[in-house]
Design a binder for these strands. Structure first.
Lengths: 249, 249
DNA sequence: CGTAACTTTGATTAGTATCAAAAATGGTGG
DNA sequence: CCACCATTTTTGATACTAATCAAAGTTACG
């Protein structure tokens, strides 16, 4: 399927551009064998406790990583979207104790760690690019900890929406401030350490205050500046090289 | 100062062992120039917003990374201790938007990113070891998100104590279950997304229930199993190769 | 058209924050 | 060694955010 292959090479191009990789390195990345598969919303790419020798590149749709506690509560620890390279680090630590699931219908490229690390050995710059990738994931995780630990429900939700919107904006042309929003309120709650009921109430407030609107799985940001302020959101932690025109102060 | 140098080579040996680095690689690491300095509790190794070309290896004492929000609230996003290699990743992302401060009096080795990445270029396995280091930091951060997002104050505190205790146990022989505990209740609160007052009350409960005791900046774990249970703590996320004898089920 | 998943609303409660102040501790200079 | 000061811990009283429980409404889907 030529379309799928293009999606993969786009994702790789993204890594190449972000990290100033050479044409040779880009080619090397493209030689890695892969398997592309469409998964349904909710499908598991990886199950808590299981090992895997695969890493995933998201070509379409969203995925999320989550962890289930002893008492059954769930915490979502990452949302991933188009062009994101997910789960490389489990090739380093042999164990990633969380689930990875599709959040919407999604198209995923599967690559084996072995193949990746073979290429990395021959092209250290690729290793460095992927390492940088891990560092950015860490930076995002730190921001999440701040968000969850020290912000009110309203701030958390606004911050979360800002992040997803900017990240999406980076990888695809978006019609102004509309973003596909397949997340249920239950999932938002689990990402932010809240309950679904409370998320529902805060969303209502945000609607009433004219910050956002959610309709038919599409989120519209009505007033970005208000939203950004309400979430005390600053995008530096995403480490985008290019300026996305989203921040004023 | 021969003592300090030994401390540094111990820290490097730790990295070497954890990652099966060769003798050659170990030597290469030891050729990196460094500066060792003693810092007072509270001293800043790095200030939010500033750039740095230094990475730190903790030789003695504790440090913590934290971030101050717009409203003045603080979230601690990492505690680091002996042999920890801190802030390498800011050599990759050029920007680490948080403070790094000494938590107690501490002895720190400063190494420049330039030097480190020069050695990494010649010895890819070292790069991989440091990358793995970043991956483990990420794993810990994820666990913190779960802890802060989905656990009660009591669980959070117990979990936090378990983690610090195990990590300490790994790098130095500890008299049974005693651990140096320089953290103030304010700092515990900021690490766990709580208030100091509430931390104080929970600690009182933990004392009464015979789980722990804190006296003169020394924390004693009275009943590890109870503590572990109360914190729903499982150490897998720390990715220790060796079994520390701390877990039963 | 029926069922399951999700959203919305209401009523109540629990956990944690906030504010305030007293007690304890640790360090410093005299 | 003591007096003093700053920091930290402890306690109490109160407020409030967000959780919990329950149920009705809505939407999506086969």
């Amino acid at each position: 399927m030529p379309v799928d292959v293009n999606l993969l090479s786009d994702a790789i191009k993204n890594l190449v551009n972000e990290n100033d990789l050479s044409a040779t390195e880009q080619e090397a990345l493209l030689t890695i064998s892969y398997r592309i598969s469409d998964v349904e919303s909710g499908a598991y790419l990886l199950r808590q406790g299981n090992k895997t020798d695969m890493c995933f590149i998201i070509l379409m749709g969203l995925t999320f990583s989550n962890r289930i506690n002893g008492d059954g509560s769930r915490q979502i620890i990452a949302i991933n979207m188009r062009d994101d390279i997910v789960n490389v680090q489990s090739g380093l630590i042999e164990f990633a104790d969380h689930n990875i699931q599709a959040l919407s219908q999604a198209k995923i490229a599967y690559l084996s760690h072995t193949d990746i690390f073979k290429v990395v050995e021959e092209h250290p710059a690729i290793g460095r690019a992927l390492w940088r990738n891990t560092a950015i994931e860490l930076s995002i995780m730190q921001e999440w900890a701040v968000n969850i630990g020290r912000k009110s429900a309203k701030e958390r939700i606004c911050h979360f929406i800002c992040e997803l919107c900017l990240r999406q904006k980076k990888v695809e042309l978006m019609s102004k401030w509309k973003i596909a929003w397949p997340m249920t309120q239950d999932q938002i709650a689990d990402a932010l350490g809240l309950t679904a009921v409370h998320v529902n109430r805060i969303l209502k407030v945000l609607r009433k205050e004219g910050l956002i609107n959610i309709d038919k799985r599409v989120l519209t940001i009505i007033d970005w500046d208000l939203l950004r302020n309400a979430g005390d959101f600053r995008s530096a932690y995403l480490h985008y090289n290019e300026y996305l025109g989203a921040e004023k102060s």
